[in-house]
Amino acid sequence: MISAPSARVPANATYGCGPVALKINFTDSWLGEALHGLLSQYDAPWGNPVLVIQATIGRGPLPPEAKEPTGAYFRSWLLRVERQGGSLISLSKSGVWLKYDSATCEAVVVVPHGSDEPSIVEETEQQLILLLARGWAQAGWTPLHAGSLLPPGENRCVLLCAPSGVGKTTLIAAALRRGWRTLGDDKTLLQTGKDGLIARALARRFHLHPSSSRWFSELGDFGKFPHYSRWTDKRVVPIASAWPDRLLDSAIPAAVIQLQRIESGVEVEPMDPMKTLHTLLRQVAIPSDAEYARPLVACIGAVAAAVKAATVKIGQGAYDDPALVGRLEKTLWELLT
């Protein structure tokens, strides 16, 4: 599903990714063009970066010193990662290799020559997401796979937690139509400090499946938007293209909802702090390495302790019924009061 690379990416490119700037030297221009979609998505404004990572990405054989990582630091479908001192070493299924030295903030990604280019690109993307997740944590932020909503005039937000495909974006769109605002639909950074909790935006775009187009009449034909990745048929849709005045850069997390699908109607159940913590932890890719996991767990614990929370179950046709949409909005408001 990856579109043929089309963007012209210079050999040396800098991407602002929230508090992290990635300065990349592409020794293979095709790779630069193929990875541009992923790297350009973190378009929320942040000012000067807290951390600058220098990365070199190119083709070649595995370095002679490369060994199969144990996966003791992190393991995903495509990656096995281990920590060696201050360095992360990661190898993907098809042999894309990453080494990141967190002391020097230097990364090397070696991509094998191969016939299955879509897999190679996908796995290189996963290595860059790993690199960014580590960089964000190093910069003091906890990456959370969650959307957010703020009512008009408020700076406190509801965090929306659910796996991809459950309906975070659809609920956000329904609320935006009623004047609510958002930091984004699935990528949020959290920080806890002396001034309290803060949530920051990373990406000002939705990832929408064409089958959901009937919920987003403001956007017109989805065919004009580029694909998100080859995993899904989702399209990358700038939120500003339909709701230019509904984007915020930061907010105070004050509530959490866990979204679930049901057959029909809307059901709301309060969540206790333990379930809230579980819900939030399931939205964070926590490494198995205690030193690196501890700050993420502490941040999520602080959020779970500070918020009101509920499970919100939404039926298939709920958004067709103005009364049910009104009930959803009332639920969001009640969580913030």
Partner: peptide, 11 residues
């Protein structure tokens, strides 16, 4: 996990 950002299985 699915990725280093999004741990959950998509529906």
């Amino acid at each position: 996990m699915v990725s280093a950002f999004d741990p959950g299985l998509p529906l």
